[in-house]
Amino acid sequence: MEGVVNSDIIIIILATGIRLATPYLLAALGEMFVQRSGVYNLGVEGIMMMGAFAGFYATLQLGSPLLGIVISLVIGALMGLLMALVSVTFKAEQGISGIGLYMFGWGLSGLLFRLYVGGITSVEGLKAIKIPFLSNIPFFGPVLFDHNGLVYTAFLLVPLTGFILFKTSWGLNVRAVGNKPEAADTLGVSVVRIRYQCLIVGGMLAALAGAFLTIGQANMYADNITAGRGFIAIALVYFGRWSPWGILLGSLLFSLADSFQSMVQVLGINFPYELAVILPYMVTIIALAISYGRVWAPAALGKPFQRGTRG
């Protein structure tokens, strides 16, 4: 069976890369809205952990991954609401409150797991849905059309969020609030409300990313299951220059490099393992370094809004 054909290997690398990109894509698209509205939420990792636990636990108890997704979205919205309360209403320093939210999510998810589950348990997670006809196309079929529902959701969200952000009045408001909150405020756009909405949407997508890990990938829960993916998602928002297509590019680049290096290791190609595991990070940093000149960012990013003052 050693004679695996080369195109098969390429299919595995690409299909795996697409699967791996999903949590980054979900969390980063959510964080994109948050940052576009002028808030950076460093608590994505903590929200992901809560979403991962909520999705897992609901699936375990209710026997349905779909309900798991619903519950994790609710938990994500609550976590986003908490961040909004702290950083928008009470105007706490965003970096610190984000880290606080991260530690809160980590601690609480671990505690809940210990209290209500207590040991390694597995669940029946989401099943792959083969898209009829499309999945039969040679090469592209297995790469693109043989994944679970959350993978399709994540990729469909790219054009959808792009449309919302750039073609709807709500998206315009989000961008205005993140760039010139005073101006938006003068024109009657509620800065606070828009930021709340963005943080809640961001929280829901981060939680969905977490749920994807527990019920769409591992089909189990363990402490610290996100293993830093939330922070990578935040980095990908910067990489993608706050645009859905940029984020898609970054997520794919990172995940394909990851999937590629796994295969290189598995096939025993003579390549130092240390280099292999950092390859995704290296590729991303290099691409970031050479591909962009002047950096644009939402002008009001990180600045709490106070009516009547500048920034």
Partner: peptide, 16 residues
């Protein structure tokens, strides 16, 4: 402690 990563690597091992 990356159980998701270990799962993915196992999947790659098996598919290969």
């Amino acid at each position: 402690n990356d159980i998701v990563g270990a799962g993915n690597l196992a999947k790659t091992q098996m598919s290969a």
